[in-house]
Design a protein around this nucleic acid. Structure first.
Length: 720
DNA sequence: TTTAGGG
DNA sequence: CCCTAAA
């Protein structure tokens, strides 16, 4: 049973930071503008949500609140909201303080969670006024870090009108006008009985979660991720789950100020008393996706058009308004031009497909020695089809549920306990002995004429390339994958007096390069699917490359990593198999998604297959000293603006070095030359070379400046 | 395509 | 290395 409440919130606009005078070039100006457009959208989005929550209290605001009219109340809320953002990876924050507040703290740890502090589950949120809201990243416990760098926006009443705002953002007035005047529908629901695991129910557990353990109040401020595209899916922007709470009102509507220009029914700015649906702020989710999940898939399946997403209890009747979807989509695409993120080898069905089949086919002798290879190869082919739709599927739905599920897995209390336990002074130590890791299969091609030394280096390159970023270590406990990184060892069951032979490790794809959205549990639909086997819960594409290792794990979940290390050492006439794969115990472990495909078939067939866009990130190939030497020499001769010529001159036969690479390398060389030797990393470049780099760089920079000066001089002469 | 520069 | 606006 769910009690719900809706309200509208009209947002009046926000102020754009001044563009620094120092922004000279048009490019920088664009960059600045772009950045702030985005940030503002985010800031606004967050603000809107938070402010929407503030409005929750409006109706029950005490008389001391010195306003009674809805309009004024809104204004009060508006003026009380401060928000700020931080760039890039740092968390976005919204603080909203009503006068004399501090009684309540809410931590919007991510977009799907609002953790209440100091509020009891028995106390209706509606009764709570004087809110003090803060929005912080789920990843950070403290919101202090980097604060000084944060740009702040103050909600200046005098600049509160859309026109002023819009005029401050050149070129985007229409969108912003439309956006800035949008309204937010906040729908809160309280389930008397929540069932964790059902969609939408979120148990909070993050480091930032400071709420009381006994009664965590969790607002599921759902980012309207599902709606970011063309979807008209009805999605609750905000739900409020308070177990065992006695919510006083049921579906009461709140009077709010409407400033919706686009709404024909109102059309002007005045307080209205009217039930309104609201458009959720869409891009918070976007940003989250991009920043945290690094996934740019961001489409909802049209199948959800006008659909009601509800959990099996049917107690969630999300509401999402269609209005302005078109605009949202446009903005979404324009301001947040998420391109489909390229997938990486191990996350890409097509890559696995192509890479493996090609290797295994052409390399028949080895198959004999390693029956595993062909086997897994075949299996991968089998998986490919399913996993591709699977991928598309899941990427559509991560925003809320990725967090939801993650936290669900973790569990609110356990996380809290984890924090506590980690503070315990006496910390027993677990002693592990990992005898060795087996490196995933490497495939190296090298000409017969190469020296052994080159072979060694090539293999080394391949190894470091894999270990450098392509892999991470997974932890298996009694064959089950331990996913929660935040749990303590003790919590997980790894203790000094435990039998540690049940502990295993595996090499697996680096999640930073594998969109986490691929994880089945990130999908709401997976919740309905039975995937009891922890292994099969691996992303199919990732599970395929689970690499067994030998740390006494009773179940060496092993598989071959179809890593095809291309070594373009130009002439690949006679491939030599230098695969170090001598595994005898590697059991192929292929995770075929055990879910019902039809349940996942929310991605329409006409949706362009992502596979066509899946591109493997190029393998990292550090420049050798010899290459640096060649580069320096070429640049000394040709200058810094002719990278194509440099390429042709010095790297013509190094196919894997593009002129962009050379330019980048030069960039880093210059940087390297300028920093202290202690700060340098990687293979040391002889100082002599670095000196030449600096010299050449200075010289050609001067040349360029001179050129430019001459140009300008000529122009002015012409003008005069 | 190539260059330039931010990420 | 990637991405992309501009040229």
């Amino acid at each position: 049973m769910v009690l719900q409440k809706r309200l509208d919130y009209g947002f009046n606009g926000y102020q754009v930071p001044h563009m620094p005078r120092a922004t000279r070039s048009a490019r920088r100006r664009r960059s600045f503008k772009k950045k702030h457009e985005e940030n503002q959208m985010c800031a606004f989005d967050l603000l809107a949500i938070v402010a929407g929550k503030l409005l929750l209290d409006k109706e029950s605001a005490p008389s001391s609140s010195n306003t009674s009219a809805d309009k004024d109340q809104c204004a009060v809320v508006n003026s009380a909201v401060k928000y700020e953002w931080q760039d890039e990876e740092k968390p976005l924050k919204v603080e909203a303080c009503d006068q004399g507040s501090a009684a309540r703290n809410f931590f919007v740890s991510d977009l799907s969670q609002v953790h209440g502090q100091g509020c009891s589950s028995k106390e209706s949120l509606v009764i709570q006024n004087n809110l003090n809201l803060r929005l912080a990243s789920a990843l950070t416990k403290s919101d202090c870090a980097g604060r000084s760098n944060a740009e702040k926006l103050r909600n200046d009443k005098s600049k509160n009108d859309i026109g002023t705002f819009a005029s401050k953002v050149e070129g985007v007035s229409s969108e912003y006008r439309e956006f800035g005047d949008c309204k937010l529908e906040v729908e809160t629901k309280r389930a008397v009985k929540d069932e964790p695991g059902k969609s939408g129910v979120v148990l909070s557990s993050t480091a930032a979660n400071m709420c009381s353990l006994e009664d965590p109040v969790v607002l599921d401020a759902k980012p309207p991720a599902l709606a970011s595209l063309d979807s008209c899916a009805k999605v609750p922007l905000c739900r409020n789950h308070i177990p065992n709470s006695s919510y006083p009102t049921n579906q009461d509507d709140v009077n709010v100020v409407s400033r919706d220009d686009d709404d024909n029914s109102s059309g002007c700015t005045h307080p209205i008393t009217k039930k309104k649906f609201f458009r959720p702020a869409p891009r918070i989710g976007d940003r989250r996706i991009r920043k945290i999940l690094a996934s740019k898939y961001w489409k909802v399946a049209p199948k959800f058009k006008d659909a009601t997403v509800s959990n099996s209890d049917g107690d969630l009747k999300p509401v999402f308004h269609k209005r302005k979807n078109y605009y949202r989509q446009q903005r979404s695409e324009r301001l947040y031009p998420f391109k489909k993120r390229k997938h990486y080898a191990y996350s890409s069905p097509s890559n696995l497909d192509g890479g493996l089949s090609c290797e295994f086919v052409s390399d028949s002798p080895r198959k004999g020695s390693n029956g595993d290879a062909s086997g897994s190869c075949t299996r991968m082919h089998g998986v490919t089809g399913a996993s591709s739709s699977f991928v598309a599927q899941h990427t559509s739905f991560q925003p809320r549920d990725s967090h939801g599920m993650r936290t669900f897995n973790g569990g609110a209390s356990s996380s809290f306990v984890g924090q506590r336990t980690s503070f315990q002074p006496r910390d027993c130590h677990v002693k592990l002995r990992i005898k060795s890791f087996r490196v995933p299969e490497l495939l190296v091609e090298i000409p017969e004429s190469s020296t052994v030394g080159l072979l060694r280096r090539t293999v080394m390159e391949a190894v470091t390339a894999i270990l450098g970023g392509g892999l991470r270590v997974g932890v298996l406990l009694q064959g089950k994958k331990v996913r929660d990184d935040n749990k303590t060892l003790l919590q997980t069951g790894i203790s000094h007096n435990n039998q540690l032979d049940s502990l295993g490790f595996c090499l697996e794809p680096n999640p930073s390069q594998t969109p986490p959205s691929l994880c089945p549990e990130d999908s709401p639909f997976l919740l309905q699917c039975d995937t009891p086997d922890p292994i099969s819960r691996c992303p199919p594409t990732a599970g395929v490359v689970c690499q067994g290792i030998c740390t006494g794990s009773p179940e060496p979940h092993a598989n071959n990593l179809g890593n095809c290390i291309e070594s373009d050492h130009d002439s690949a006439s006679s491939p030599t198999d230098t695969s170090m794969d001598k595994s005898t115990n590697s059991k192929a472990l292929v995770a075929v998604p055990a879910m019902k495909v039809e349940a996942l078939a929310v991605v329409p067939a006409h949706q362009k297959s992502k596979q066509s866009e899946i591109v493997q990130r190029r393998i990292r190939r550090p420049f050798s000293v010899a290459e640096v030497e060649a580069l320096v020499q070429a640049v000394e001769k040709l200058g810094t603006g002719r990278w194509r010529d440099v390429k042709l001159r010095a790297f013509d036969n190094a196919k894997h070095r593009t002129y962009v690479d050379l330019k980048d390398k030069w960039k880093t060389l210059v940087h390297t030359a300028r920093i202290s030797p202690q700060q340098r990393r990687g293979e040391p470049v002889p100082q002599e070379l670095l000196d030449r780099v600096l010299t050449a760089h200075a010289y050609w920079s001067q040349q360029q400046a001179d050129q430019q000066f001459k140009h300008q001089h000529a122009e002015t002469c012409l003008l005069l």
